[in-house]
């Protein structure tokens, strides 16, 4: 069988990333240029600044991927690019570069959905994933539960109706003065505190659907903080309760979906899948129900291009290629 090597490029938010993956499994190169330090100054990702950094770094990052893989440019079989969802201005830098690069090398272009990429990060790390699977994608921009009857097939079961979970982490962390990005900041504070001292609402758990709402939880955390005169002594306990509440809501709904769909497997994906409390709770509760629970290694939870190149392999095999008029989109009405 022919070895298929795909270059993946990812610029949907604040990481400029390129990777080369062979046969959808074997990572030959994985370069991520993070802009976190730059955006920290602004308390969050500034789209225009992200785009400016992408254009400065894109060719360097791609070149570095080829050097790491020890490959010449024309030894790849296709160029895969994230074209949705994300910051449009940022996506367009990667997309325009990818079009030019694929054209110059006369290689096919593959358009990859960023969220499919996140799910795919699991397949880069585990080769024994069985279907049907239920997948929780949870990040700064998204919180959705998907059903996957087979590799490369997706059905949305539920989504957040307001904030994404990662967004709630960011906002609460900023409000509590814990810094940015919020996920790691809250996890760190929570480790020093105790959940249960302050009780936050388990929003939407009483509803039988698979949608989420985090806006109310966020407000409740902020109100607790204000009510207690922003007493620094309570920060860690409040962070712990907030994290625990989020993990519980995400776990209960995801496992409910898995039972409903008779799934064998639960996949965690996205930046918030790096959160320890969520990983541990999902694994323990899931295994207690006879499910296999997977999450990607930490390095593949946050945005990267290996997941894009890996995900594109399914499309490559189906001959699902994009044309030169491919556009970028902030959101997708459907996955």
């Amino acid at each position: 069988m022919k070895e298929v090597k795909i270059l993946g490029i990812e610029t949907s938010c604040d990481e400029t990333a390129a990777a080369i993956v062979q046969n959808g499994r074997h990572i030959l190169a994985n370069i991520v240029n993070s802009q976190i330090a730059i955006h920290q100054e602004f308390g969050g990702v500034v789209p225009e600044i992200a785009s400016r950094k992408h254009i400065e770094n894109i060719s360097l990052v791609v070149d570095a991927a080829f050097k790491q893989a020890g490959l010449a440019y024309d030894e790849i079989d296709a160029v895969a690019i994230t074209n949705a969802p994300g910051l449009v201005g940022a996506l367009l830098v990667g997309l325009s570069f990818a079009k030019g690069f694929a054209y110059a090398l006369d290689k096919p272009l593959i358009a990859v959905n960023h969220l499919h990429g996140h799910i795919y990060a699991n397949f880069l790390a585990h080769d024994d994933i069985e279907f049907p699977a239920v997948c929780l994608i949870v990040s700064g921009g998204h919180t959705s539960i998907l059903y996957m009857p087979a590799a490369g097939e997706y059905e949305v079961l539920g989504s957040t109706i307001d904030d994404a979970a990662g967004e709630a982490f960011d906002k609460v962390a900023r409000f509590l003065g814990l810094g940015y990005p919020g996920g790691p900041a809250i996890q760190k504070a929570a480790a020093e505190g105790q959940a249960g001292k302050y009780v936050l609402p388990r929003v939407f758990l009483n509803r039988q659907d698979l949608d989420f709402s985090f806006s109310g939880l966020k407000t409740a955390a902020m109100n607790q903080w204000k009510k207690n005169d922003m007493d620094p002594a309570m920060v860690n306990d409040l962070a712990a309760e907030f994290q625990q509440t989020l993990a519980e809501i995400l776990t209960v709904k995801t496992l409910r979906a898995a039972m409903l769909k008779d799934a064998r497997t639960v996949l965690l994906a996205g930046g918030v899948a790096a959160n320890d409390a969520l990983r541990i709770l999902m694994k323990n509760e899931g295994e207690a129900k006879g499910l296999k629970v997977y999450y990607p290694p930490l390095s593949l939870c946050t945005d990267n291009a290996a997941m894009i190149a890996g995900s594109a392999y399914f499309q490559y095999n189906k001959g699902d290629f994009a044309s030169l008029d491919l556009n970028a989109y902030a959101s997708l009405s459907s996955l």
């Binding site: 225009e48 785009s51 400016r52 992408h54 254009i55 894109i58 060719s59 791609v62 070149d63 440019y73 449009v88 201005g89 367009l92 830098v93 990667g94 997309l95 325009s96 570069f97 990818a98 079009k99 030019g100 690069f101 694929a102 054209y103 110059a104 090398l105």
Partner: peptide, 19 residues
Amino acid sequence: SFTGIRIGMATVKGLSLGS
């Protein structure tokens, strides 16, 4: 236009690196 400039520049960077 910031985005317009970058579409042009990113496209030619891809063309140039590849060719």
